[in-house]
């Protein structure tokens, strides 16, 4: 087997006396789509933010394609923390799409996408803008270049947020609850869109509470409970034949509450 694209080992994080992540380890292969599910407050958003060091984990390692970000073991076996500058440099290897998108309201759509590559990677503006326009066209947003985020619908904002992350040419994408800030009727549209992104070969880690969504998009599902990976495996297996009692309970609850909103028609 080849080296995993993302390797998370023994990640831990506490806020004061509250332990969010106890000991999390998992791997993601290139091209894979992994959904992280779990009850609210299980630490799934914290996990995602610790992976790209938006929040500094207290312990454990994160490797992207063999490169450590943040904490790394030295040759002498001692663990040391990289400089903030180094972490800032490595962070865009992972594109991050926020739950609320967090588009910059004072910049046009094009500028939202172009500012990062121009300022951080110091790439020529002309080239970056050409790439940004291509991304917008591919995402069905041609003509919105000069619009401001406030003029966009929720789904459009999300696609701009994705384009902004992709413009940095990341190795993989992290999504924090991609459907929770959107109207239920466009959830399916988002599903199709993310599916397309996955089909183009993009590696994705998606935190979600929508089981239907996970079922249709994910190759693999990780169930988080109590700050630990309680169960993981192929989506069909984990969601269709859960072993962990907590996962069974969780799935049963979800089905009761969210059955009508479930995505019953597969996209293909």
């Amino acid at each position: 087997m080849t080296r995993p694209l993302l390797k998370v080992s023994n990640l831990a994080k506490s806020f004061g006396t509250m332990t969010a992540l106890r000991d999390i380890s998992f791997e993601v292969e290139a091209g894979e789509v992994v959904c992280i599910i779990g009850p609210s407050g299980c630490g799934k958003s914290t996990l995602l933010r610790c992976i790209n060091y938006l929040t500094f984990p207290d312990g454990g390692f994160v490797e992207v394609d063999g490169t450590h970000i943040g904490r790394e073991p030295g040759r002498d076996g001692k663990v040391r923390m990289q400089s903030h500058k180094r972490i800032d440099q490595l962070r865009p290897m992972m594109g991050f799409v926020f739950q609320q998108f967090n588009l910059w309201p004072h910049m046009t759509v094009l500028e939202n996408i172009a500012r990062g590559p121009v300022k951080v990677q110091r790439r020529p503006r002309e080239e970056v803008e050409r790439q940004a326009r291509a991304l917008l066209a591919r995402f069905g947003l041609a003509g919105k270049e000069d619009a401001y985020p406030s003029a966009l619908s929720g789904g459009q904002k999300q696609r701009v947020a994705i384009a902004r992350a992709l413009a940095m040419e990341p190795r993989l994408m992290l999504f924090d609850e991609p459907t929770s800030a959107l109207d239920p009727e466009i959830v399916k549209e988002v599903l199709l869109f993310l599916r397309e992104l996955a089909d183009s070969g993009m590696t994705m880690v998606i935190v979600t509470h929508e089981i239907g969504f996970a079922r249709h998009v994910a190759d693999r599902v990780i169930f988080l409970d109590g700050g630990l990976v309680a169960e993981q495996g192929p989506a069909r297996q984990v969601l269709g034949d859960p072993q962990n009692p907590r996962l069974r309970e969780f799935l049963a609850q979800i089905h009761e509450v969210a059955a009508p909103a479930d995505l019953s028609t597969p996209s293909h």
Binding site: L54, D88, Q89, R91, N102, G116, V120
Partner: peptide, 26 residues
């Protein structure tokens, strides 16, 4: 909102660059 600076950090900006490019204009 805190998410504004975080979005800047997520595309690799340092704290000061994020403050300058994203927070200060707002």
């Amino acid at each position: 909102p805190k998410g504004q600076l975080e979005a800047a950090r997520a595309v690799g900006m340092s704290y000061f660059m994020g403050m300058r490019e994203v927070v200060a204009p707002q």
